[in-house]
Write a protein that binds this DNA or RNA. Structure first.
Length: 859
RNA sequence: GCCGGGAUGGCGGAACUGGCAGACGCAGCGGACUCAAAAUCCGCCGGGCUUCGGCCCUUGGGGGUUCGACUCCCCCUCCCGGCACCA
């Protein structure tokens, strides 16, 4: 019908992303084996992983960026013949589900599973190539039972223990909060409510047992960003020093009358003029027992510290202290020095007590000046004659390059030497020893929350703490639990859950009602992907040994410490129990940059949130994900611009139209597939054809190099755009495919179109698949080998060489590629423009940079 | 305060090992097609001067090394991220 013709034409000419993407989306759902990792493969393995999301309800652009990077890499590796493992899962326990339960009256499980369905559909709509058969959902019993199993193993090994400790408490929620749920000293759900400290009995994992190894092995992780390694080093906070016991003057000789201080500079101890205790130090309470005034003052110091923590700037508060009017004895020289309590001493670092050496520590100096405490110099630069010192403190306050003065038998020693000798002396005389302290603390995993893994422990009146026997796992998290913000753990109000039988004596026992921190779930989930349906063990050690370590892990830098340090700890523990062979879980780590818009992080309150669904509806999934890779390199912050997505869509349209009008007909004309792959020799090609061939091979090289090197996909995509621009230009000059056959051989047309589609496949998989089909090909693009470049074909025949005079560009000469330096020099000097510019001047020197540039130095 | 990262046209960004600064894209301007618009295709596009040959300036600021510096060295300013009274 005549009236049908125009519509048909329009459809063929238009890049209809929605049509193409829904078509391929459907086809990919039908074939589950498409992205499946092979169990017994002779190919080299490659495990690429993106951090699993929390199922909050919908993907945000940061997710899209994260997954677009991983997906491009996974597809590239598939095309390069690797056995790729590329799974996805859900970090699905956690507080938001409980919040939703309270505000919408929806059970956490239902809310979470619904969110997962929605987000999974979004991922499929975006075309990410995940092996869904290995999906891990941490809130389901088939996963969390292994959390419980691991907990029992940790308990057996003494790595899980229970102790009383100070924890964050939100009075509004009436529950404990994790450190990460405290924002500026306030509850994350009640931004005006200050978090309190409470003493509670909690379960801890002994991560500090591995502190030394966690620190040391960071040196091996050279595939990790230096930034992340530094952050972990600081977090672990190893510090070498000395413990020294000071005796309380006039007290009986008992442990209670001993004040142990930690110092990294025992060499300065002859300069100690006071002892400073943290306000929470146990001795303080005893000294203040019959002293109401002192007790009140100490309370004030504690309040000051708390306030500083709330402000988040502990260094900014003024130093403030109280004299206890008690004295301690310096074991090195018998000197009695006053004991103070000060707000700048932290109870949770070192021993909560220090010796104050004002002459050699900036903080002690500030404090001593304020309260008129004695200042005694005991370290001077090595060049100083002790007789000539003024006794004034030497700046900077502490210097390891100095030597000791006024230090009894140690006078004259160099600082490093003194530290060693004085530590040995303390050890020998029983009042101290060299030691190492860490900032890293054991990991408190108890949460007074419902939506988490139940801790598999029982409390029996007769037998005390009793672990749930392995055969009774999983301890199932009950449903239909009344979730409220008052009255402690919601599980405590479920009698069927709480009341149990002691497996030892058969008597009544009470179940632990706290649940595990969700970081437990994410500490080992990536092992589960290797064997996701195993119901006898968390995973098969042999299978894990094949896939591990993860070759490439990709995620946000916000996990640099918590998740990544817990995961490293978990792997070391599993190695020690014989479950895995690797010391570290992750070989290479990549942290992508944040997405911002209009100079600020996307947030609801700023109203600058860009929704992936909206972008997909407007521009398609291919354009949306490709834009996240094109806008900037993946490690940098990305400033979102909708117009940029439109630009990518425009480009994909150009590719579509080029192949639509040159491709299908041409493929029919061309010879067999194998003949198409045969690269034409340079000599048989006309210049226009040679131009295309050269540009093609240069592009393949640039894209391949970016994948194998620095991951600057923005330049890879720019290179593909250049290729397409070149194709358009050539087409403009010589015409379309069939009619241009005399200039551009059919096989070259075919080669360039095939390779163009393959280059696009990791970035825009839907369109690439459609074009592949339009070229008459069948089967998944992932099974097609990545195009190879030929450096001989990529080479330029002629090169332009800029000619400078005194470093300023003054001309351009064109020479055959590979010309000798002498030829280039002659040609440069013979150039008319250059001759004119040089006339009347003396040529001092001619520098020829081979193949690059000529610089003529004149006077 | 300490440790990272960064600053390049109107905008996002290229320039990988010291060698033509501004690739690629966006926005803008002009042209073609159209009755018109959209879409598409082609061209121009850092600033200033110009006798239209060119010339000068320009990669946050100042100095240096070099035949030559966005790139290396020293000093300074601002922005982002992390840590922060760690004894």
């Amino acid at each position: 019908m005549p009236q049908d013709e125009p519509t048909t034409m329009v459809r063929e000419d238009r890049y209809d992303a929605q049509r193409i993407e829904s078509k391929w989306s459907e086809r990919w759902q039908e074939d589950a084996s498409l992205y499946a990792a092979e169990p017994n493969s002779t190919k080299p393995k490659y495990y690429v992983l993106e951090m699993l999301p929390y199922p909050s309800g919908a993907l945000h652009m940061g997710h899209v960026r994260n997954y677009a990077i991983g997906d491009a890499l996974a597809r590239f590796m598939w095309m390069n013949g690797y056995n790729v493992l590329h799974p996805m899962g859900w970090d699905s326990f956690g507080l938001p589900a409980e919040n939703a339960a309270i505000s919408n009256n929806t059970p956490p499980r239902q809310w979470t599973l619904r969110n997962i369905e929605n987000m999974k559909a979004q991922m499929k709509r975006l075309g990410f190539a995940y092996d869904w058969a290995r999906e891990v959902t941490t809130c389901l019993p088939d996963y969390y039972r292994w959390n419980q199993w691991f907990f029992l193993k940790l308990y057996e090994k003494g790595l899980a223990y229970r102790k009383k400790s100070r924890v964050n408490w939100c009075p509004q929620c009436a529950t404990v909060l994790a450190n990460e749920q405290v924002v500026n000293g306030c509850c994350w759900r009640h931004e005006d409510t200050l978090v309190e400290q409470r003493e509670l009995e909690q379960w801890f994992l002994r991560i500090t047992k591995y502190a030394e190894e966690l620190l040391r092995d960071l040196d091996k992780l050279d595939g990790w960003p230096e930034k992340v390694r530094t952050m972990q080093r600081n977090w672990i906070g190893r510090s070498e020093g000395t413990l020294v016991d000071f005796k309380l003057e006039g007290a009986t000789d008992s442990p209670e009358s001993t004040i142990t201080v930690f110092t990294t500079r025992v060499d300065t101890i002859y300069g100690a003029t006071s002892i400073q205790l943290a306000p929470q130090h146990p001795l303080v309470a005893r000294l203040a027992k019959n002293n109401d005034a002192l007790r009140a003052q100490v309370e004030e110091l504690i309040a000051e510290q708390r306030k500083a923590k709330e402000v988040g700037d502990i260094g900014a508060i003024e130093k403030h202290g109280v004299n206890t009017h008690h004295f301690a004895v310096n074991p090195y020289n018998g000197e009695r020095i006053p004991i103070w309590v000060a707000n700048y001493i932290l109870m949770d670092y070192g021993t909560g007590a220090i010796m104050s050496v004002p002459a050699h520590d900036e903080r002690d100096y500030e404090f001593a000046c304020k309260y008129n405490l004695k200042i005694r110099t005991v370290i001077v630069p090595r060049s100083v004659d002790p007789e000539e010192t003024s006794g004034e403190p030497v700046l900077p306050f502490t210097t390891l390059n100095g030597k000791l003065i006024n230090s009894g038998p140690f006078t004259g020693l160099r600082c490093e030497e003194a530290i060693k000798k004085m530590s040995e002396y303390a050890d020998k005389n029983g009042f101290g020893n060299a030691t190492v302290t860490f900032r890293l603390k054991d990991w408190g995993i108890s949460r007074q929350r419902y939506w988490g893994t139940p801790i598999p422990m029982l409390y029996c009146e007769k037998d005390g703490i009793v672990p749930v026997p392995e055969k009774d796992l999983p301890v199932i998290l009950p449903e239909n639990v009344d979730i409220t913000l008052t009255g402690g753990s919601p599980l405590g109000r479920v009698p069927e859950f709480v009341n149990a039988t002691c497996p030892k004596c058969g008597g009544p026992a009470r179940r632990e009602t706290d649940t595990m921190d969700t970081f437990v779930d994410s500490s080992w989930y990536f092992y589960r992907y290797t064997d996701a349906h195993n119901d006898r063990e968390p995973f098969d050690p042999k299978t894990a040994a094949y896939w591990f370590p993860i070759d490439q892990y990709i995620g946000g830098v916000e996990h640099a410490i918590l998740h990544l340090i817990y995961s490293r700890f978990w792997t070391k523990f599993m190695r020690d129990m014989g479950l895995v062979k690797n010391d570290e879980p992750i070989d290479r780590l990549f942290t992508q940059g944040m997405i911002i818009k209009g100079g600020a992080k996307m947030s609801k309150s700023l109203g600058n949130v860009v929704s992936p669904d909206e972008m997909i509806a407007r521009y398609g999934a291919d354009s949306t994900r490709m834009y996240t890779l094109f806008a900037t390199s993946p490690d940098r912050e990305l400033d979102w611009q909708d117009e940029g997505v439109e630009g990518v869509q425009r480009f994909l349209g150009r590719v579509y139209r080029f192949i639509a009008r040159n491709g299908p007909a041409e493929t029919q004309l061309a010879a067999s597939p194998s003949a198409q792959r045969k690269t034409l020799p340079v000599t048989s090609l006309q210049p226009e054809a040679r131009k295309i061939q050269r540009k093609l091979h240069q592009t393949i090289k640039r894209v391949s190099d970016d994948f194998q090197g620095r991951w600057h996909f923005n330049t890879s995509i720019a290179a593909i755009m250049e290729l397409v621009n070149e194709l358009y230009a050539v087409e403009e000059r010589v015409g379309r495919a069939p009619s241009a056959a005399e200039v551009i051989p059919a096989s070259l047309w075919s080669e360039v179109q095939r390779d163009l589609v393959l280059l696009l496949a990791p970035f825009a998989p839907h369109l690439a698949s459609e074009l592949w089909e339009m070229l008459g090909e069948k089967g998944s693009l992932l099974r097609v080998p990545w195009p190879k470049y030929d450096s001989a074909l990529a080479k330029e025949d002629e090169i332009e060489i800029p000619v400078q005079i005194n470093g300023k560009l003054r001309g351009l000469i064109v020479v055959p590629a590979g010309s000798s330096d002498d030829t280039i020099r002659e040609r440069a000097l013979a150039d008319e423009k250059i001759k004119a510019a040089v006339t009347g001047k003396q040529v001092v020197k001619v520098i020829v940079v081979p193949g690059k540039l000529v610089n003529i130095v004149v006077r």
